[in-house]
Design a protein around this nucleic acid. Sequence first.
DNA 1: AATGAATGAGACTTCATTCAT
DNA 2: CATGAATGAAGTCTCATTCAT
Lengths: 204, 204, 204, 204
Amino acid sequence: MGRINIRSIRRQQIVHAAEELAAQRGWAETTIADICKKADISVGGLTHHFKDKDDIMFAVLEDVIHRLHDRLVASVSKEEAQQNPGAFLHAFCQSIESDRSLYRLILHFASSSIHRPDIKQRLKAFFASLHQRDEAQCQEQEKRKDKPYIRSQAMADLLQCVGLGLILGYAFLDLQTPAEQMEVEAAKLLLPYIQYQSASSPQS
Amino acid sequence: MGRINIRSIRRQQIVHAAEELAAQRGWAETTIADICKKADISVGGLTHHFKDKDDIMFAVLEDVIHRLHDRLVASVSKEEAQQNPGAFLHAFCQSIESDRSLYRLILHFASSSIHRPDIKQRLKAFFASLHQRDEAQCQEQEKRKDKPYIRSQAMADLLQCVGLGLILGYAFLDLQTPAEQMEVEAAKLLLPYIQYQSASSPQS
Amino acid sequence: MGRINIRSIRRQQIVHAAEELAAQRGWAETTIADICKKADISVGGLTHHFKDKDDIMFAVLEDVIHRLHDRLVASVSKEEAQQNPGAFLHAFCQSIESDRSLYRLILHFASSSIHRPDIKQRLKAFFASLHQRDEAQCQEQEKRKDKPYIRSQAMADLLQCVGLGLILGYAFLDLQTPAEQMEVEAAKLLLPYIQYQSASSPQS
Amino acid sequence: MGRINIRSIRRQQIVHAAEELAAQRGWAETTIADICKKADISVGGLTHHFKDKDDIMFAVLEDVIHRLHDRLVASVSKEEAQQNPGAFLHAFCQSIESDRSLYRLILHFASSSIHRPDIKQRLKAFFASLHQRDEAQCQEQEKRKDKPYIRSQAMADLLQCVGLGLILGYAFLDLQTPAEQMEVEAAKLLLPYIQYQSASSPQS
DNA sequence: AATGAATGAGACTTCATTCAT
DNA sequence: CATGAATGAAGTCTCATTCAT
């Protein structure tokens, strides 16, 4: 077990170094030597833990997804989510400001997705899981209120786009609007839309 | 004049080839040799027209911005815009489906912005110009209706994020929702929000 | 004849431009495009006058030799030279300060001589001609005075080295000693040596 | 320690190969591939030890200066120098014949100095250090003999020029005069001048 | 004679990967 | 496990030269 710990500690060192560098300069501009220097490990040492540069990249991707999951899903308990439809939005807006480097990495991977089907697949799978969870929550919520749950694909897509847009906005445009204010504003935009939808769409 | 035409024709050839390749594989994965092959020109010939690989990239960026401008701004006449607040949205959604490679390039440049201040500056300047135009239109429109025009910074940022989100969604997630449907849905989301804002915020 | 003049004027333009650039940056660092720009001529135009980059270089070499000849030989009339053994030294020291770029070019060609036998041959031939002329003058002078003229090869070589050294010193070390002072100093060094030689070496 | 040795051994291999080639063909005509072939190392291996082609060049420059220092300074013990003013001249003339490639490199660097201030600075610093040492020796020597030491700047410059001239003469003109003979001749030229100077210039 | 666009060989440099120690 | 020297492929860029107009 000590072994395993050392292994995973080393891996973490490397992944963190890679993340930091990639968020600053981009992945293509980050060399293995850079990562080694920052992680304080030799080139050969790195090779023991990661077969490839790609191997590191996927580890970074997993870590990014994991961190995003923690922020958006794990931090919002089921009960909260059910009682307050804005809880997710709150968690999202909180994270958006406190962890810009995370969103830079997401933007980076999203861009890479264009020519890397493997990355695309992984990312889409994650977003799909978010979406499913969201849907499940809605259904449960609506069930409780005895209202039929209906959410069209277009609606789901649109909501996802809005989420991505906020990420892109903060990662790329460096929006100065503070997260709390943005949260209020986004609530004004989204809540009526969501409620209007569930109320008015008996058939989609 | 023949000379000038030849110059610009060649430049166009090269820029188009570069765009096509970059939209497919990404810029870093596109070699100068690839561009030359696709543009049917020799390496040295390319050098005559572009100093650098970067020089090509900026030409591509300008072309992308130009195309986006045409789609979003030029195609919506002033009159239309004033009479129909959804005209812009319409133009946007139209373009989103017909020209995915354009949005891939934008996603690419957005991602590059993270570590290339020069690209970031150019892109932000363009988005700011879009935003200004939008604001001007709103003011004019509201003036006519004798209603005070108020749009908070947060609102403007949010709307810009939504736009970026749609781009990112289509460029990266390959959304299958057809553009017309998405337009309808986006209208449901945005129009109430916009009108609510202008109605309810006498002072921001 | 007009034709010939135009030709030679163009050639001069080009050679002068090439000299200026080579004296500043060195020959290898001077591109044909640079020369064209400075000579205000197109690449193709240059080709009409010079077959090669080498062709230009040899034209420069000839011009340099010509200028040096003018300074060292032509400017010292035969009579002067015979009456005053320091006349040559004077001409030399004069030129050394007034035309440093000339000496830079000589240093450049001297250095190139190492790997370019053709340049070496041309330069050595010129220096040999200088040497011969010097010797002839000495003989004539000595004959008049009824003293046997003897100058060993070693002596000739040494004197040539001193000359080269002054060139190198000014071209490379940027000596600050004014030419007049250097002339005085060199006279103190050389004149006794020359006279001592001719007096004391009845047989070499 | 093994590591360090390997590093410096490899560096030496590379520097020596570079020197040999540069002395033959000139630096600009020496490609990195050539150096690699001669040093029996791969391109990437070379990069490990030298960042740049320039980096190699400066290592060569340092080596050249080091070798020159050894020949001219280290080989002449202080005692010798003080007792025999010709010792330095002797060392110099000895070296001039036995190590022509060294002088070719010096000529090369001198020529490069024209357009490379960094090289110029390094070389001038070395020659200045030679000059200082020379001056210090003279002062000590003269002190012992109770004669005032006076050496004008012009005199120092002239002597340095003579030294450079001998280098240039052998490096460039391929003088055939054997070193011993040249030494005798140079002594005839210089010794009277030096002694005359120190005797006759109570105030300069 | 003149123009300058086009060519393509070749140089420099970077870097992911391998491997002996 | 770890080190870092070594490899060599691949990419970018420069530039002398050619050639159609």
